[in-house]
């Protein structure tokens, strides 16, 4: 079966972001961009399935501006076979991304789609669940372990109280959690090879998907700043402050 993975281009997790002065969003010009870390985990999981003979082909999908090609190239350098970019400069919200993914799924007929549980920019944690809903498929969210065999998958999920095991019918959508695997780095030869792998570029219109945002962003602001307090020298001083100044113990 084919496995489709979503790879989103986001501001690198190490960057300290800045809110734009006009409060319309976050400064993205001249900022280091990377693949969403949860999507690296998604790519890795798909590649391991291929290496185990469980997947025949790994396709990397991204939606967004032309530069998302770089993100797809990263997935190809890790080992994905080919890429699909739905190119648009429009703001894409999770429902729109899920609809684009669905259109690509209809075309490609993968047996499994793996996406990140959350993109570290917009922190929505929605796209995978929405895609599963639109397809009428099962969903294995926040996956800590994935075991695929004969038309079904066992998924160990990270939940509030610990871990939970479910068995889901394939085809399915999986969303990755941090402990699913440790993604590999692309080797130099593989980076070279990736340059020759194909990336298909599509427009949202060609997939007959309306990507118009449903949520209007009225403003984006800085959060209130917490100011640094004091350093205490001794444990006795700390306990005194907690008891008599903060009143928390």
């Amino acid at each position: 079966m084919k496995v489709l993975v979503a790879v989103k281009r986001v501001i690198d997790y190490n960057v300290k972001i800045r809110v734009k002065a006009d409060n319309t969003g976050v400064e993205t010009a001249n900022v280091k961009m990377s693949m969403n870390p949860f999507d690296e985990i998604a790519v890795e999981e798909a590649l391991r399935m291929k290496e185990k003979g469980l997947a025949t082909e790994v396709i990397a999908f991204s939606a967004g501006p032309a530069q998302c090609q770089e993100t797809i190239r990263t997935a190809l350098a890790m080992g994905a076979d080919r890429g699909i970019l739905v190119q648009t400069d429009a703001e894409l919200q999770p429902l729109a991304v899920a609809k684009l993914l669905k259109a690509v799924v209809d075309k490609e007929q993968p047996g499994l789609v793996i996406v990140g549980k959350q993109a570290i920019d917009d922190d929505s944690n929605q796209t995978g669940q929405m895609l599963a809903a639109l397809l009428g498929w099962s969903q294995g969210t926040f996956a800590n372990k994935l075991h695929v065999a004969d038309g079904s998958a066992e998924v160990k999920r990270e939940v509030d109280g610990g871990l939970e095991n479910i068995k889901i019918k394939l085809p399915a959508v999986i969303t990755t959690d941090l402990r699913l695997n440790e993604p590999r780095y692309a080797s130099l030869p593989n980076i070279m090879k990736a340059k020759k792998k194909p990336i298909e570029v599509l427009a949202p219109d060609a997939l007959s998907v309306d990507v118009a945002p449903r949520l209007k962003t009225l403003k984006v602001e800085e959060p209130p700043k917490r100011k640094a307090g004091i350093k205490v020298k001794t444990v006795a001083e700390l306990v005194d402050k907690l008891r008599n100044e903060a009143g928390v113990i």
Binding site: Q129, A132, A133, Q139, D160
Partner: peptide, 23 residues
């Protein structure tokens, strides 16, 4: 917005063809 809400609410939203407001 706990692991139950995060799992279910987006599925509900997509079936209703509406956006979800997270957290």
């Amino acid at each position: 917005a706990d692991s139950v809400g995060k799992n279910i609410a987006p599925r509900v939203a997509a079936l209703l063809d509406v956006a979800q407001i997270s957290e």
